[in-house]
Nucleic acid binder design. Structure first.
Lengths: 152, 152
DNA sequence: GCCTAACTGTTAGGCTTCCTAACTATGAAC
DNA sequence: GTTCATAGTTAGGAAGCCTAACAGTTAGGC
């Protein structure tokens, strides 16, 4: 294989290939979201709340995490609220703010959806070789670093 | 209930991390599409046509490549046609079919948009270390294989 | 204290993309 | 030459995202 450091021409080739991989990942994303129960954004929101059960999370923070504007986050939160999965409470420290918290039902829903989607993904990754899984695992922190650097 | 054995713990962790990485990649995808000129689907369509300049590509094939249903592909093709980037011709062998071909203007547009987005991506990947780029490069074929296996 | 500016979130309206269902037209099988 | 399958378009609607306008709250300057 090619073990020498990537030349500058390789940077462009890598860019092209990464773009292509990202583009085709829609198949993967769609497969995972085929649940029908919760949209990807809704599940992400609930997962966020899972890590902040006590205090809840502010709308703006949810929006930032989802990569959308605040009104779009509000829209999703209202849907989750209507479904009984979250509730909105006034922030004791700042009356402008709203704290979104998970309900018991929401807690169950996120656990269930999360488990199922992980199982689907595990089924897909299970067909890979150990070597391939290692290559994938080694790249995830890199992708994570890229994504963090772009997060506003 | 649990009729099948739980997947290996490492596999589940990888599944979770990969899902997380994919989810956060929306920042990256949005950054690349910030052009405003062409949507991701439209650029993908034009790139497809670039590789089949002579014969054009059928609508169903475009839909499959985009990962959408035929009516959605038709919609995008009509927009591209109205923008003067593609034209639709009857298939000489099958009068039911339509062959979508790139115009000269479309050719220029895809080259330009592609070059620009590759440059944006290269700018992002340029901030990585060689080691990180190598890890990413090693994982792309794996991701590609996963995506291909899911393509209908 | 007050006035202004900044901030948090909601509402309203519109755009894009995707879907399913229904339709037209053509091809293929028998 | 029916009959069934296939290719694509049209119509209508759902979901997600956006910007702009708004109300309420906080914080800083005077």
């Amino acid at each position: 294989m090619n073990d020498q450091p990537l030349p500058d021409a390789g940077l462009l080739a890598l860019s092209r290939d990464f773009r292509e991989a990202l583009r085709h990942s829609i198949y993967l994303v769609r497969r995972l979201d085929a649940d029908g129960e919760l949209s990807a954004a809704q599940l992400s929101t609930l997962k966020m709340l899972l890590d902040a059960v006590d205090d809840g999370v502010r709308v703006g923070e949810i929006a930032r995490n989802l990569g959308v504007k605040v009104p779009s986050a509000t829209e999703q939160i209202i849907k989750l609220e209507r479904a009984g999965l979250v509730r909105r409470e006034a922030d004791p420290d700042d009356s402008r703010a709203v704290r979104v918290k998970l309900t018991g039902e929401g807690h169950a829903a996120v656990e269930s959806a999360n488990t199922r989607r992980n199982a689907v993904m595990a089924g897909i990754l299970g067909s890979l070789s150990d070597r391939e899984r290692q290559a994938l695992a080694a790249a995830l922190p890199v992708i994570g670093r890229i994504n963090e650097s772009l997060q506003p």
